[in-house]
Design a protein around this nucleic acid. Structure first.
Lengths: 127, 127
DNA sequence: ATTGACTTACGAAGAACTTCGTAGTAAACT
DNA sequence: AGTTTACTACGAAGTTCTTCGTAAGTCAAT
């Protein structure tokens, strides 16, 4: 277990770093202040904490520090999925997938998309 | 949004109530003390808090209170999946399913199981 | 009826998370 | 150069979560 699980607020910041690439505090704030209403120093503090945890790294060569995600999107996704599987579905991927399919908000279009995804995956991923 | 999202410890207790049905504190403890090493009053306190939140209800007719889950397993599963979709996968079920398939711990057997699950679902669920 | 075991209620402490205010420092601008 | 603006660092407060200790109530069995 290399990385700690990012908290909700940390995850919001990681999304920005994944989407925009290396960013200064103000760049992250620009993306989050509308949706979260959070202040500048909050983002700063969170990034500092994330730095300590190893979730991000920073470039201090200029006065305006630039942060980038050290935890890859894929790895974070896998970590969250594994945790959900363990804590909610007793490790059963089958039951998790079924729950996704049965989700009240599932549209016909989504279902078709998921079906195609699985077909393509099986075609490409021979193990 | 009727129910608050159960915390980790609350979820562990809900699993016991889902599996065993209505249970007293001691019954829950019996199932959890080996795995979590947690004490009696911890379970008691958690159940009291869960009662306040509406996650469980209790029968006080006897001195030994009996708790039962008010939040259904299905509803909890849906809630957790929806939250994960929102917070990690930007609402994309396709990407979540893909992540499950790509999960490092996926065995051939599991993949086959998931494929069958989807086929069966599509057969049964015409919309 | 006293003791002992079991139970509930309550408070409190420690940890993690989230947020912000304040102070100090660097950069930019007139 | 002096002032304004932008940035970092740090501390602290409020919240939730998890845990347990202690006190008080109930019940059964001697």
């Amino acid at each position: 277990m290399k990385f700690p699980k990012p908290s909700e607020a940390e995850l919001r910041i990681l999304h920005v770093l994944w989407d925009q690439g290396p960013s200064a505090v103000r760049d992250v704030l620009a993306k989050l202040e509308k949706t979260t209403g959070v202040g500048y120093t909050t983002i700063l503090k969170l990034l500092q904490i994330m730095l300590e945890k190893g979730l991000v790294e920073r470039d201090e060569s200029s006065h305006r520090h630039v942060y980038s995600a050290k935890l890859a999107r894929e790895d974070a996704e896998e970590r969250f999925v594994d945790d959900l599987l363990e804590s909610v579905f007793n490790g059963s991927k089958k039951r998790l997938v079924l729950q996704i399919l049965e989700d009240a908000t599932s549209s016909q279009k989504e279902l078709e998309e998921i079906r195609r995804t699985i077909l393509e995956f099986e075609k490409g991923a021979v193990r």
